[in-house]
Every structure is written in C-alpha cells, then in structure tokens.
C-alpha cells in the first residue's frame, strides 16, 4: 500500500465507500427474499452469525485476546430466551434483553479472574468455559431438557405482533445485524476503541500511556458476550428449536472460520465471513455430510495462507478499517 500524504480525507468519498458493504448486504438479503424459504433460512443463519462474529471480533480482532468459549454466552441467550418465552410466556424482545443482561453479568464474573491469563492459558480457560456450559446444557435436564432440546419457542416479535414468516424474520435479522455492525464500528472509532486497539498492539505500551488494560479487556469481553447472547436468542426464535449441539465446539470453529475468512479486526470481515461460510456448503450440494470438515479445512487454509482474511486482501475495505472519521 502506497499511502503518502493522504491527509485530506474527503468525508463524502469515505462515506460512499463505507456504504458499499451495506448495499451488498441488502442485495444479498433481497436476493434471499425472492428465493425459497430454504435459502432464507440459510441467510438467516448467516446474519445471526454476523452478530456473533462481530462480537467475537471485538475481543479477538480489536483487543487481540482470544476466547474459545463464546458459545457459552450464545447458549445462555438461546436457552434463556427459550425458557422465558416458551415456559413463562415472555415477550421475545424482553427475553432477548434480559438474557443479554444475564450474559453480561456472567461475563463480568467469569472474565474478571480469567482474563488475567495470557496465551495458551487464556485460550484453554475460555475453551473450558464453553465446554462447561455445553456439558451443563446436556446434563441439567430439568432446565434444558438435555439432548432432547427445547422446542416451541415463539418467533421474534414486538408487542403482540409476531413475525410469522421466515422472510419477515430475515428482514429483522438483516436490520439487527447491520445495527450490530454499526455499533461495533462506532465503538471502534473512539477513544474506547483506540484503547482496545492499543492492547492488541502492545500491552506494555498501552500501560505506559495510562490504559487500564485489565478493565478494557473485561469490557471488550462483556461486549462480545452481549453480542453472542443476542445471537443465541435470535437463533432460538428463528428456528424455534435449540439443543446442546447448536452451541457446541462446532459453533466455535465455525465462527472462527468466518472471522478469519472475512478478516479479523476489520469492520466488515465478520459479515463477509459469516455470509460466505454459511452459503458455501449450501452451494456445494452433496457436501452436507462433510460440512464440518469443510469449515475446518477453510479455517486451516486461511490461517496458514491468508491470516488477514478477505477483508485484509481488499484495499477497499482496508481503507474503511484504517481511518473512517466521523464526519458528523
């Protein structure tokens, strides 16, 4: 990249560029709306995963930490929403926020001791957290109905109005995913976001500049947990059924495949990755059986040959990542 003296950033130009992925997402969704319900379901997954990965990107991309156990918070969101709505007749939206709050609190409690760890130990500790919640969803049958799973979860809706068709729900998911990406971008382009980036860059330099790294790591972890929890809740409402397998190790690997394929640490990387990884196995019919093998193969390939992902390859998105300044 040869970027000399590009001091005069034209806000209009940047904004136009920044809108491009939004347009792309809307086009993808529009294409889905014109297709079968099956395609809509696949795209719905993609946008739920967009939310999950955007959160993960906070902790791993922006802050440079690692969590191999974000599936735990998705499970809290999914099961929380399922139980509150199916058994207690809560409003889906209310349940979504309530479980997000619960996940946030859980993230603080768990993150406070765990995030002191580094490297392999952090990876293994977070991995264990995910596995613990997974085991609990299997074994605590009184709460989760174990392997049987939880069914009869109502679709998303507001104030008595339910989104009955999958296409309506897809629209809602697209809006929520874009909202999630926008929030992440806004947070990144701020003092807060810069502090996170400083931790990823060099912890000792961050400390020397007065960044309270323990606190910022924790906040990033909590934000990631909120996104994961929301994704879990949305999954429950979208499919109407959840089981422990949904929030297992596969979810972790799949989300990493998305994050690294799309481009970790970039604004649109999670979205790009989520859409491609969700749609690809559907496009390659007959590969169904081998889906997980496909994900892991993609992930390993990307990790070896293009660790910065697609967004990293593209100068266009690279600029968006670099310095979008709020023109307002």
């Amino acid at each position: 990249m040869t970027s000399h003296a590009t001091i005069s950033i034209e806000p209009a130009g940047i904004r136009w560029q920044a809108m491009l992925p939004v347009v792309a997402v809307v086009v993808v969704a529009g294409f889905g709306l014109l297709s079968s319900d099956y395609v809509v379901t696949v795209l719905g997954f993609a946008f739920i995963y967009t939310i999950f990965c955007t959160g993960l990107n906070f902790f791993m991309g922006y802050t440079g930490q690692a969590s191999f156990g974000q599936s735990a918070f998705a499970a809290i969101g999914g099961y929380g929403s399922a139980i509150l709505c199916a058994d207690y007749g809560w409003e889906p939206l209310l349940a979504l926020f309530a479980t997000m709050a619960l996940s946030g609190v859980a993230a603080v409690i768990v993150g406070f001791p765990t995030l002191r760890l580094r490297g392999h130990y952090l990876a293994m500790a977070t991995f264990a957290l995910g596995l613990i919640v997974y085991e609990v969803t299997i074994e605590w049958t009184g709460l989760t109905q174990g392997y049987m799973g939880y069914s009869g979860i109502p679709p998303l809706g507001i104030a008595g109005y339910e989104l009955v068709t999958v296409k309506q729900q897809l629209v809602a998911l697209v809006v929520l995913a874009l909202f999630g990406v926008a929030v992440a971008a806004r947070l990144r382009q701020s003092r807060f976001g810069r502090a996170l980036a400083s931790i990823a860059g060099s912890e000792s330099a961050a400390l020397a500049l007065g960044v309270d790294i323990a606190r910022y790591k924790l906040v990033a972890f909590v934000i990631a947990a909120l996104y994961a929890s929301a994704a879990g809740s949305l999954f429950a409402h979208f499919i109407g059924f959840i089981s422990p397998e949904v929030f297992g190790v596969t979810m972790v690997v799949q989300s990493f495949a998305m994050l690294y394929l799309g481009g970790i640490g970039t604004m649109w990387g999670p979205t790009i990755g989520a859409i491609i990884v969700s749609v690809l196995p559907e496009a390659l019919r007959g590969l169904k059986e081998m889906q997980d093998i496909g994900y892991t193969a993609i992930l390993i390939f990307i990790l070896i040959f293009a660790p910065r992902g697609l967004a990293g390859l593209s100068a266009l998105f690279g600029r968006v990542r670099g310095r979008v300044k709020e023109a307002a």
Partner: peptide, 27 residues
C-alpha cells in the same frame, strides 16, 4: 513498542488516552 498494525496517526491518537475522557456510552 509501537502499535504496529495501526496507522502512524492512530498511534499518536491513542497517546492522548490520558488527557481525554469517554467510554462506551459517549462512543
């Protein structure tokens, strides 16, 4: 000890952490 993956300008902007304020909500 630079923030290698960031731009030169953003490196300096991070430097102002101590003399600025604001967290998640103001962002």
């Amino acid at each position: 000890q630079l923030f290698k993956h960031l731009t030169v300008a953003e490196n300096v902007e991070i430097g102002s952490h101590r003399v600025t304020r604001g967290g998640v909500f103001s962002a």
